[in-house]
Write a protein that binds this DNA or RNA. Structure first.
Lengths: 164, 164
DNA sequence: CTATAACTTGAAGTCGACTCCAAGTCAAGG
DNA sequence: CCTTGACTTGGAGTCGACTTCAAGTTATAG
């Protein structure tokens, strides 16, 4: 096993796509644990740290604020999540939030497609989109942040107004 | 046709989920056109304005910065997009970016599911995820912001380290 | 007639997430 | 020995997107 390989902050930045400054910033706000140092004070990172930084990058892409990542990071590092009901709940709830996001995004894609197709097929777009059920599914949480078909009616509306 | 119905800023805020302050802010930065006023100076909104605000809310959910929305808003209001190659390109390129986002999010969901299932089935997770091809597809643009399977290896890694 | 509510304005403040800066240390090369 | 490069630190600055504030106007209700 070559788990002992270490990396400079520069290498770490390159491997994760997160800048050196940002990595230091994450350490400063204790999102990352204080990195080990060499004798000269330079930070050293191992594969484990790189995985953690990648996890942060990944969660960031799902729109999670840094503060909300803390439980994921602290618990995950030294724990099998299946043994921590708290983490399991976090994972589940974040999963649901991501599923909602996907539904919203998929709707935007659908409506962009509709808009793009309009010139060609000119089909009337007043039916209830089937993507709708995606919105109803999942969580009973008060999450009013979903894209409703109404919200996207702009696209079809404007076309109707000027082309009908 | 009852297209003449007007709304106060408060009603508009309620209908769109965007606060009054934020609506005024959008007008201030000219993301929204200056709203009509009543004699007393109060803003009035029509269905069209509400649609536009909903579009902003919708694009916001896809992570688009306000500045990038301008072309969508200005062109869409008075135009059939199929006649504006520029807008068509914007739509296409934003579509691709959303598709990438969906792929990233789907990966996070997959890995959360894996993590959640680990305790039960304990299956080895070292196969190349098929969601991978979603990442390769679309745009030749320099968009290095996608989630690679490696980035999510954190989840499976930590489990392997402690349970294998 | 007063006061409450719903608005108006311009400006200032906040917050998250960086991003940059100045001053300093250390190791290696010419 | 001096410079170059890769790092260190604390702190300040930036930027996007609001959010709050203070002061003022107008309409309605008691």
């Amino acid at each position: 096993m070559k788990e002992k390989q270490t990396f400079t902050i520069k290498q770490t930045a390159e491997q994760t796509g997160i800048t050196e400054d940002t990595i230091r910033y994450y350490e400063k706000i204790a999102l990352l644990p204080r990195a080990e140092r060499k004798d000269n004070g330079h930070r050293i990172y191992r594969q484990e740290s790189i995985d953690t930084i990648r996890l942060i990058a990944c969660l960031k892409k799902t729109g999670m604020p840094l503060e909300e990542m803390r439980p994921f990071l602290t618990v995950s590092v030294d724990t099998d999540p299946a043994e921590y009901p708290e983490l399991v709940e976090l994972l589940k709830s974040h999963r649901e939030s991501i599923v909602s996001q996907i539904a919203s995004l998929q709707q935007v894609v659908d409506f962009i497609d509709m808009k793009l197709e309009e010139g060609k097929y000119r089909r009337d777009c007043s039916d209830e989109s089937p993507g709708n059920e995606l919105l109803e599914k999942g969580m009973g949480e008060p999450e009013p942040k979903l894209v409703s078909p109404m919200e996207m009616s702009f696209f079809s509306k404007s076309a109707k107004l000027y082309k009908q």
